[in-house]
Design a protein around this nucleic acid. Structure first.
Lengths: 220, 220
DNA sequence: TAGATTGTTAATCGATTAACAATC
DNA sequence: TAGATTGTTAATCGATTAACAATC
């Protein structure tokens, strides 16, 4: 029940802030392991290359108070960040489409703290069904409907081909899924109450390639 | 030489715009294949769920002019977007760290137009060296220095463990790498002229999980 | 106590959205 | 011609940064 209130009105934390929070968490976990008890916003900012005021504002969403001249308690802050982000809970997810990216994410989440745990994967391809990837069973797609009845899973990772994305997404919604992490290039058309997190690898490539050619052109 | 000029001054295209461009490209390629010759900004906006003015402004970076009442020529626009993003060139890259995420990305880029082509992968682990993944050789890490002398590769994908990230990144810079696509959680400290594109999967997970718990709390 | 740091409020900056003239 | 759409300029909105009082 970690709501942010301002004048007693619930305010959503902005997306830029949310995206930065895991960065703080990883850094703070590292320094905490190194034995650092307290850390100031300017110190964090220097390491993560962002404004100390930004750090203070971002961290305030956790509700943790810092002490002037001392900073924040690393243990408290790590705990509060994990709690706020939901990284300390087991957020179970289905994954649909056990292709390259799908298997990658399954293998990845075994070792990296993503906050989301894939508990079952689905595919229509015969040669993928039955496989074990990163400790996860790949099941026949049709089993999704049956399994979702028994388990209360709210999150799905969508790594199908673009052509199947919309249909699968609709199936997922019918199965009670509330949030879809969409790795396809398809613009999903779903009810408003469904949370869709689009994640296109190409967007990152685009920014990187463009910045690279910008920097090359500067020298002309 | 695709520079954006305003009052004859070079202006960088903003990151939000750059991130949206691949989305336009994928959508336009799809409709072009379906035989659509011209498309208007409002039509694109409706499909991609964004403001038509935004679409017009975003697309203007390509230099392509639309016709009032008609819209944009899909062929022209696809071509210009590919060119602007560099997706029609072969942007060769090294990949360091052939672990789960590394191998996944190698397999992925075979099938998806990322705009970036991994031509060699490196790892220190004996049991990865010599493997072929997605048509790419995994080489001994030390070979990096030798190979970078012969080839003019400017991009590197960093998928090592966090603990090795900074050292490897420095090696890459010494090998002439100009842009690093960083998948580790390490905050790389490199010269200013090096382009670092941080891509933390956790950031997306954070946004998704938080939005999900926001929506659950709304119903209390 | 002196001074660094927090935390809040105000100023700035940049991106999105709105308004509207130009145009096909 | 009439009207939809482009493209530019202005207004708005939201996030970042600066200023500063409170505090340990």
């Amino acid at each position: 029940m970690n709501l942010n209130r301002k004048n007693n009105k619930i305010t959503q934390v902005s997306e830029p802030t949310l995206r930065r929070l895991p960065g703080y968490l990883f850094f703070l976990e590292k320094v905490r392991e190194e034995g650092v008890i307290n850390i100031s916003a300017p110190t964090i900012g220097k390491e993560l290359k962002c404004d100390p005021t930004q750090v203070v504002k971002d961290l305030s969403v956790t509700g943790i108070k810092g002490k002037p001249r001392v900073g924040y308690n690393t243990y408290e802050l790590c705990h509060a960040l994990e709690d706020f982000l939901g990284f300390n809970r087991v957020n179970e997810a289905f994954l649909v489409g056990a292709g390259n990216l799908g298997t990658a994410l399954m293998a990845y989440q075994e070792h990296q703290t993503l906050g989301i745990k894939v508990i079952a994967a689905f595919d229509v391809s015969e040669d993928k069904i039955g496989k074990h990837i990163g400790g996860i069973h790949v099941l026949e797609y049709n089993k999704l409907f049956h399994l979702s009845n028994r388990l209360d899973v709210k999150i799905a990772i969508l790594t199908t081909p673009n052509s199947a994305a919309q249909d699968v997404a609709e199936d997922l919604v019918n199965c009670g899924i509330k949030a879809i992490w969409n790795f396809t290039h398809c613009n999903l058309d779903l009810p408003d109450n469904i949370i869709v997190q689009d994640t296109s690898m190409s967007s990152f490539a685009a920014v990187l390639l463009r910045r690279l050619s910008d920097s090359e052109n500067q020298n002309i």
